[in-house]
Design a protein around this nucleic acid. Sequence first.
DNA 1: GTTGAAGCGGACCAACGGTCCGCATACGTG
DNA 2: CACGTATGCGGACCGTTGGTCCGCTTCAAC
Lengths: 179, 179
Amino acid sequence: MRADKARNREAILAAAGRLFDEADDPDRVSMDAVATAAGVGKGTIFRGFGDRDGLLRALYDQYTAREFQTLPDAVPDLLVRIWDFKRRHRVLTLALEREGFASPYRNDGYDRLHRHLVDLVTRARGPRNADFLAHALLAAVRSDLVEYLKEGSEADPREGLRELARSLLGPEPGAEAAR
Amino acid sequence: MRADKARNREAILAAAGRLFDEADDPDRVSMDAVATAAGVGKGTIFRGFGDRDGLLRALYDQYTAREFQTLPDAVPDLLVRIWDFKRRHRVLTLALEREGFASPYRNDGYDRLHRHLVDLVTRARGPRNADFLAHALLAAVRSDLVEYLKEGSEADPREGLRELARSLLGPEPGAEAAR
DNA sequence: GTTGAAGCGGACCAACGGTCCGCATACGTG
DNA sequence: CACGTATGCGGACCGTTGGTCCGCTTCAAC
């Protein structure tokens, strides 16, 4: 790997991260804008990341690797973690979940979370429909829902999320101890 | 309303409906294609529907008005009805839930379903977090999830949906009678 | 039949994701 | 250090799309 390539890759990721953080609508962040902000030609981005989706994914992977190194075994906590993560990176996750068309699911990060949840669900209530229920739990933290509920509702959505998890899985073992 | 305008409106809706039914990916249905298929100029579509979103929404409203005239009071049945509806109109609903960016929610059809579900949830378990739980139930029938799970999984997702509803709301009153 | 308004249609525009290739640069080799 | 070549760069360029615009047509009231 040539040094300039590595340097450019970092510059592009940094610039894209900044632009997405500042933007309100993912569509307003064009590849041209990223290239300009990174001080790089557009071709360089496409050679390094394939296409727009590839860039978003690389950025997303970088964030998730940092954020989800370890996954909590308490489902309510996990869901709230995901919720907060998506609030923090709203525009990027919004963009990613819309890209492609079954793309939110065909994705290593999603798979990992899903497998973990299937495991937890199975432990709590057996394997029946565990696969689907895990999907449903993840659907409750879809980033456009996070975005839509981020303000204005009377109750804190995160509390709702906790209640959803409790209803499905029963009270957390050790939850009383924590109170 | 002039006669030709009404005629064109119908032709456009019919053509768009047909094209979306035949398509595999919503992005492959361009406005030009709709115009050509309807035997109409592109301007006519935009004058009559505002923009692409307006056309999709009009089409969607037409379908939902037919499909959801009455809403069942049994949550599992309602969810399964929505699931089947979205399978039937996969490309259109896929397109609509991706359009805009909090757009799946700011929408009369969604609002109506949500209010109905809030009511049912409140009746079953009280008002606490009912708003969020209703959103979560609707998230479980997001059309890209429907699309993703439509085949290949061991269990029928519709069964999972029923179990989700039962877990949240308790056994349906009168459910034993139906067995 | 006449006339004003309502509506039509497709040439046109701007913006986007993605490609391409002549040129610059990094780096192993002598 | 000098050199040669493979690697990588960049921005002009392309095709496609949603959306606009305006000269012309058609409707329908009188």
